[in-house]
Design a protein around this nucleic acid. Sequence first.
RNA 1: GCCCCCGUAGCCCAACCGGCAGAGGCAGGCCACUUAAAAUGGCUCGAGUGCGGGUUCGAAUCCCGUCGGGGGUACCA
Length: 986
Amino acid sequence: MSETAEHPHRYTAETADRLERAWQDRWAAEGTYEAPNPAGPWAAPAEVAEHEAAGKLLVLDMFPYPSGLGLHVGHPLGYIATDVYARYHRMRGKNVLHCLGYDAFGLPAEQYAVQTGQHPRVTTEENIGVMRRQIRRLGLGHDDRRSISTIDPDYYRWTQWIFLQLFESWYDVDAPRPDGGRGRARPIGELVAELEAGTRALEGEFAGRDWSGLSAGERSDYLDGFRLTYPSEAPVNWAPGLGTVVANEEVTNEGRTERGNFPVFRKRLRQWNMRITAYADRLADDLDRVDWPEKVKTMQRNWIGRSHGARVDFAAPRVDGSGEQTLTVFTTRPDTLFGATFMVLAPEHPAVDALVADAWPEGTRPEWTGGAATPVDAVGAYRAAAARKSDVERQIEDKTKTGVFTGSYAVNPVDSSRVPVFIGDYVLMGYGTGAIMAVPAHDQRDFEFALQFGLPIVDVIAPADAEARAAWPGSVADGRAFTGTGVAIASANDDVSLDGLGLTDAKAAMIAWLERSGHGTGTVNYRMRDWLFSRQRYWGEPFPIVYDEDGRAHALPESMLPLELPDVPDYAPTTFDPQDDSSEPQAPLSRAREWVAVDLDLGDGRGVRRYRRETNTMPNWAGSCWYFLRYLDPANTDAIVDPVNERYWMGPHAHPVAGAPAGTRDPGGVDLYVGGVEHAVLHLLYARFWHKVLHDLGHLESEEPFRTYFSQGYIQAFVYRDHRGQPVPAAEVVEAPAADGTPAFTWEGQPVTREMGKIGKSLKNGVTPDEIYDAYGADTLRVYEMSMGPLEQSKLWETRAIVGAQRFLQRLWRNVVDEDTGQLRVADAPADEATRRLLHRTVEAVGTDYDHLRFNVAVAKLIELNNALTKLPAPPREIVEPLVAMVGPVAPHIAEELWHRLGHEGSVVWASFPEVDPAYLVQETVTCVVQIKGKVRARIEVAADVDEQTLQDAALAEPRIAELLAGQSVRKVIVRAPSLVNVVTG
RNA sequence: GCCCCCGUAGCCCAACCGGCAGAGGCAGGCCACUUAAAAUGGCUCGAGUGCGGGUUCGAAUCCCGUCGGGGGUACCA
């Protein structure tokens, strides 16, 4: 390039490339970013002590998944942001732990391997290699010693260990916690001991029996009902096209898999689950104690879906004459029980069979029968139709209420009225009890159902406000349910009256009556279900579980960990026709017969026996639930993390986060976690759950994994499509104004349309970091990405705008280095007053901006200061040095190079962030704005410490103001010394 | 349908507790350097804050309504 010849010492892409690589090598060789641990295998307490005054900082990025496609320019955004933050805090003297590992087990890696015909380990390791190279070239200050990968047996040994912790524990809802609450995980051995000693009674189907009277099998089943991870036969989400079951959290609204978009079918299968529901309350409550975006907290609260209400028992005579069938409903509105005029059960509800009559009873309306001759036919046909409908169809269909009468009546406990029992698919088996009491006057869905089927609608709530009550014609006349808050009416029996009570009191009164009369109980219901944990896939962590001849699950002893994933030639999943819901999942590991059948001594006193290994593997989420804990102490072979290290890096702070409820303590956790919002109810919820279990069991001091979480926006790019809607290569699109002046776009001469979209190969708008490294250098990419806009916002990638970032670095370079001679240009003469003031203002602003992740504003301030230096004949060293230091977090390579050229021996990485001298922040004089009725009419220079009266006098004496005020009466003068005077006239 | 976020110059974005609408960048224009172009540098142009109302001495900022964009969620009893 010619400019190199003309300006041999100019900062160009080549210069950047050369010095960036050189500094990356040197940082690696010198271990510049290695963070000392207080304890464990890497204990370096003396080095830790050096940071005692400033403290520590744990910065975390979401665990990346090494895809075969490599990175595009959108991926590094968060990594750069955390790196800037980490580097800033290093300059503040903190012991900063920042590193990056790889989440390498899972479906996409396996699919990629199947496509390319290579073993997943081979392709995954290759992909990690590519990603490591791309990440290293960005110059991130990671402690590479701590980089771990989930597929490493030394890592997944501990994933399996955590699984065993969950298997070997149960949730005791009564156990007191150190924080004063009740409920925590305890070792299952303690449960067994209490059962053996008879201090704890058996529950559920074993209630009333004695532990010693149970068979071994019964004991095992009983304990499985308590373990935090347990096998169970239950309806799960089976995706034949994916060849595996998936968790509820991985199913989209459309009833398809999040990964691959395959149809999902409900199927009863024996699978492993995690008892996350035991933690529902704490997972919901503790959101108040972390510093997260409110949006993400809301998403988690909605997912957990806690609602307070009551369970109410209705009784219906069984059609076979064998007595009463209890139908339990969940309602959030027990106060409307007097208005319950019918019941609806989910079509799959198990009690339906006991209620389907042989013939339509007297008074059955024709529309209740679904056109069938008998209830048996009607219910049979309706159930068959409902079962045939996929979830997708149920969603897509309009919301017209359908259902049929079972031919049975139940008794409303509150007034002994007979209410017809229907089945209908608007009641879901998966929520509450799968049965509802219908209160058509006060629930819009029930209202619609009642209209459809000619069922009675009885108002039991009326508007509370007398005026509104007088105007309200009743729900039937109004044409809709009254769902607002109001007061109860027509709600009394011999025993209880709700009449006149408001919502809260009426609910409480009804719950009290239900409990008193034995017809129900106040309860809390959750939308969240237990977490389906097994997958029929090869590329995941094997379960440390074996089955004996009776099919009972046994944990492998810890000494047998890691249980390594066997190398099998046939790792491809067995997939089916995506629509074939009759198919059965087949785990690839089940084909590894020699691995599955083993003779082991589990150390339980039974000696060597024959066992069959669990052939499911763990889901992708397993490895990412706890990786940050391993970063803290990756070489520790005795423990998942040394407790001292965990307390040091993640222990609770002295003060709770802003907005936490009074009296709560800080939960501990990562100091800053940055990642995309797409994991709001998956990873972020699962990780919190495991963390709380490990906390309860005494392995962790912190109660939450992520004290502060920041969700970054995405970088998007324009997508151009031709007339068929096909994306065309974005880089080849030409922009030219159309005849009317509006922007128009063409590709190969053909008009194309423009829209925003994700960056990627499929949309033909991909830009890789490597292209940008080559054309501009990593520092330029870093500065550009940080200056694009607020971190939390989605932003538009615009390759042509990058040059602005490069020009900034070039000007910075030119302020220090002569482009022709390579000599230093800085002057040792003192700076002038104005520049010095600007410097201190900049130091002040950039520091707080870095601290608050406002990198776009920080970069603008640095550019401003740099531009001010460009105008000087020779930039003064006293300004240049702090500027270079402040640039260090965003553009570490150029800063390091200039720092050394300025004569420093040590790294800029560990230089102190410049100090603000407050003396330079105070202005001697300021410009005061003089307004008349809020409009600026004059400006005057006044002393910064001017008092209000003097300022007012000066303002009114200002000739232009005096002129404008002539002949007007001054009503009021507002003085905000020293910057503003507002004269109100009239 | 419901909930949340965002609308400032041609474009991306600043603006503290309500107090001069502009920090920075891109693009555009002019000039310098150049045989020329690119690159680089200098200078410069540019909106009254989506719209309508309200509160206030004063509103981009607070409140109400409305339009547009983005996200979440949806028969959850």
